[in-house]
Design a protein around this nucleic acid. Structure first.
Lengths: 235, 235
DNA sequence: CAGTGTGAACGAGTTCACAGCT
DNA sequence: AGCTGTGAACTCGTTCACACTG
């Protein structure tokens, strides 16, 4: 909801969490969260927008704008309480809820994800990991035992999974994605290098490692081209 | 830079490759490339903007706009030649150059990346993989042998590496990043969950798996909230 | 005609300057 | 005095309609 008619200036509805945070802002809020955690680990209790912005790699007006979508959690003339701001951002992002994640695919990537401490430390619990290979099923990954992908629906239900990560080959990604959706999972993170089709109510995000390298290649190419003329590089 | 005064309408400088493709457009071009490769594999030789847009998960005006930054590579009334367009996008993105990639970290993630076929098939050659653990150094990953991170500079030079991927713990990421930069690497893709500081001439991209889950959590939370502001419509 | 290529309108995201608290 | 919070200007990205072409 874009507030086209703001409430009377100066009167701010306390306790109201902002609706509709712009996507770009949500992405940055997760970075602030990380920066705040680092500061907390260093024993720092208070920061100014300038300091936090530096730690997060953005400029301070942007940081303040982003935080303003959540509410007014700073103190003018002073700054922000690290712990308190951390908590408020967590609440706004929904990280205080109970997220139970299943990983599909117990290859190198799936195992890397299962062992990634960043998940657990941010409130995500990994409750299941699946594989299609019978030689892998039953083996241990961290403190989990690999389940057979044949038992997908049963295990998802038993573990009360509400998020899934696809770390499987492109060839089976759409099929498994469909089964996840049919099983009621509506938040999916995919590492498979294909465009997946999902119904509109399902949140699908994609991480694509080769896309990232390609974007780097584009910029590197431009950097190394010495030319600047209007015409270059044909064919 | 930005063409505010377009050349006379209808007169298009042939052979001129577009300068300054918007970042959002570059990201989508890599998706079109993937879609084109799929079509090629299916033996399809010609597509309309509508078909290609569907395959890539965008709408057709956007696809045409993106392609127009590169030049006019379609045929009006007909569509695009799959192979030719594939090649033109590859050239525009700099994928026809010689990209030699080193992976830092031979843990699960590093090994997953080393074995990822999507890299090689898009013109990236993985030329080295490093680890700090002496037990891992010397072991085989794919057709590569793990190098000691102590030999970083020597090996980077010998292999003529021009891109690096950081798949190491957060605690050593900045230090290794600095060494890469000092060794002349100016394109770095990081999977480490920290904000890295690099000089302005270095292209740094970040892939953050826990950020992605957090963004999912935000949307999922909003979807499951029964409340209704006057306007809902997520994303 | 069918489908591309693009100028122009529109809307989202970012920057900035400064008002308003503490 | 100092730093936050935010309207307003601005920039960038997306959508759209249609002129243009094979």
């Amino acid at each position: 909801m874009t507030v086209t008619t703001p409430e009377m200036p100066g009167l701010h509805p306390v306790g109201d969490t902002a609706r509709h945070i712009p996507p770009a802002s949500v992405a940055r809020l997760t970075i602030y969260l990380r920066a705040l955690n680092s500061l907390l680990a260093e024993g720092i209790e208070r920061v100014s927008s300038e300091e936090l912005a530096d730690a997060a790699g953005v400029n301070s007006p942007m940081l303040r704008k982003d935080l303003s979508y959540l509410g007014s959690y700073g103190t003018r003339g002073v700054g922000y309480d690290v712990q308190y701001l951390n908590r408020q951002i967590s609440i706004a992002l929904g990280l205080t809820l109970d997220w139970r994640v299943a990983i599909l695919g117990a290859g190198n990537l799936g195992r890397a994800l299962a062992g990634y401490s960043g998940f657990v430390s941010r409130g995500f619990e990994i409750v299941a990991i699946f594989d299609a290979d019978q030689l892998v099923v039953g083996s241990e990954v961290g403190y989990l035992r690999v389940s057979a992908v044949d038992d997908l629906e049963t295990v998802l239900e038993r573990t009360r999974t509400n998020m899934a990560v696809l770390a499987v080959p492109a060839s089976v990604a759409q099929e498994l994605c469909d089964r996840l959706v049919a099983a009621g999972i509506s938040s999916i993170l995919s590492f498979a290098p294909v465009v997946l089709q999902v119904p509109p109510h399902v949140q699908l995000r994609k991480v694509d490692m080769s896309t990232e390298l390609q974007i780097l290649a584009y910029h590197a190419q431009r950097a190394q081209e010495p030319d600047l003329g209007p015409i270059s590089r044909a064919q």
